[in-house]
């Protein structure tokens, strides 16, 4: 019998790999009987779309910007880039 801990592990793994038939079956049985894990499963799955939206928000967030000093330095390095060896 699956316990809640093992069920939570399988739920996480199901986001990264296909579960085997046996794993799917035992997980389904556990979820039928366990409302805490059903709730957990729903919340766990909601993390993925949240994470994706967080990324797009940060990528367009004007609070995070290259500052002028860094910009100048990178510009210089790019300008010299052709002549010098790779920066380690």
């Amino acid at each position: 019998m699956l316990n809640c801990q093992k069920a939570s592990q399988l739920l996480s793994q199901s986001l990264d790999r296909p579960l085997s038939f046996r794993e799917r079956l035992s997980l389904r049985l556990h979820l039928l009987m366990c409302d805490a894990c059903r709730r957990f499963a729903k919340q766990l799955r909601s993390l993925r779309p949240m994470a994706a939206e967080l990324e797009s928000r940060v990528l367009t967030d004007d609070r995070f910007k290259l500052d002028e000093r860094a910009r100048k330095r990178i510009k210089r390095v790019l300008h010299d880039g052709g002549e010098q060896g790779p920066v380690s």
Binding site: V58, L66, R71
Partner: peptide, 28 residues
């Protein structure tokens, strides 16, 4: 520049490391 910087910053959480990554990326 800013887009790449934010992308790097999400990962490294360090401004100067993120700047370095942008520089290395553009150089490469």
């Amino acid at each position: 520049g800013d887009y790449l910087y934010r992308y790097a910053l999400l990962q490294v959480r360090d401004e100067s490391l993120a700047e370095d990554l942008v520089q290395e990326t553009l150089l490469a």
